[in-house]
Design a protein around this nucleic acid. Structure first.
Lengths: 233, 233
DNA sequence: ACCTGAACACCGTTCAAGT
DNA sequence: ACCTGAACACCGTTCAAGT
């Protein structure tokens, strides 16, 4: 069949910005931001690297597109619920997104710092969140404070300080010292870790329940905000 | 003078791990994490790239060393003050460090996620922080919660969601739409921004006082923790 | 006009050849 | 034994040559 394009090179559907971004997100989900490269995205799409530049200006703009893609996955605000429920559900949805895309928080944070303005989806997300607070009776001043207080719980940091089960693929380059030495060097961490592992009655296995901890912190912050609001009224 | 080493290549002091890490931190401070490369560090030290590998195993281990370097810059806990003052001063010192090294929070966060254990300086920092809470009369359970609640305020996210004055070097690849269109698309952000810029009585210039906002959020969180502690007693 | 291969200026790291 | 240049397998992006 002369003139027929090489099947290995031809993709079923034509290339598009959406297909490029989807492939990029999938690649980053699998191997982290370091494993992401224009060349690998092209390879996965069965396309020559330069073909990507028809749909994204460069790698920087690709990263912005990836942020918009994943932030767009956050559930929209629920209708008809009170402000507190709405904020709570939304932040928990954002957290699930960040857990699905572990590379996202660092990329978002870096972008936030060096770009003049966040990407459109981030802007929309923050805007909707402000609207929820306003509808809940918060003054402008208090909404301003509230956004700062929520801080990284809105986006950009998924709160896992201690990973109890290290990722299976992670090669421990420097093997951690034996538990006794760890306990001697960091007595308070050891004491805390012991207590947490000990009284884990309802929690399956050792270590702490990240989901519970996240919601605990979130609820405490929300309590404080509500108290401030009522005091101002 | 035959046999004399080339002065352009010879460095005054001999290469050491500390000099390598210092050069790496300085390079990242100037150009961000992307501008950091083994080759550029070597060039700055007047040394051949491979010479660095005598003092750091690879770039991953270099990044770990850089984290330890900057986390080591955080002031030690003050002696003789109550727990609240001590935590407050320490977290504010950590924030100053993160502002000095804008690349650090993203690097720390990425590292926290893929490494089984944080670097020694991070471990020591967290350990001391736990000790301060314990000395303040917090139960083990409550300290555990407290560390989660403090979350990214301890390390890793510097809270600047909106940069009022974009960094001078930042070339606006996609020029932001005119203010009217921004206000139409994001009415709540616009309303908030207007209010903040308007009633900036004591604050010099437009925009919000990041320092004030950071301390406001911190104090609110601390209030909540103290209330919990007293209720448990 | 559109597409794309080669090329350019990088990168981290290996390794063998030099002293 | 130590040091280091060349080399390898990458990378993002430019650009000219091909259709």
């Amino acid at each position: 069949m002369p003139g027929r394009p090489d099947p290995a090179r031809r993709s079923r559907t034509p290339l598009s910005r959406l297909r490029v971004l989807s492939a990029a997100v999938a690649l980053a989900d699998e191997g982290g931001a370091d494993a992401l490269s224009m060349r690998k995205i092209a390879q996965r799409l069965g396309v020559v690297p330069m073909a990507l530049y028809k749909h994204v200006a460069n790698k920087d703009e690709l990263l912005d597109g990836m942020i918009d893609t994943v932030v767009g996955e956050i559930d929209p605000p629920v209708e008809g619920a009170d402000w507190r429920t709405t904020v709570r559900l939304r932040v928990l949805s954002a957290r699930r997104m960040l857990l699905r895309h572990p590379w996202a928080s660092a990329v978002i944070e870096t972008r936030m710092k060096e770009r003049p303005a966040p990407t459109p989806a981030v802007m929309a997300y923050l805007d909707e969140m402000i609207g929820v607070f306003r509808a809940g009776g918060f003054s402008l001043d208090l909404v301003h404070h509230a956004m700062h207080v929520m801080g990284s719980r809105l986006l950009g940091f998924s709160q896992e300080l201690f990973v109890d089960s290290p990722s299976p693929a992670a090669p421990s380059s420097s093997p951690s010292p034996p538990p006794e030495e760890m306990a001697a060097r960091y007595p308070n961490i050891a004491e805390l870790a012991g207590a947490v592992a000990h009284d884990a009655g309802s929690v399956v296995g050792a270590g702490c329940d990240d989901q519970y901890e996240f919601e605990f912190a979130l609820d405490l912050t929300l309590d404080g905000l509500e108290r401030l609001r009522d005091a101002a009224a």
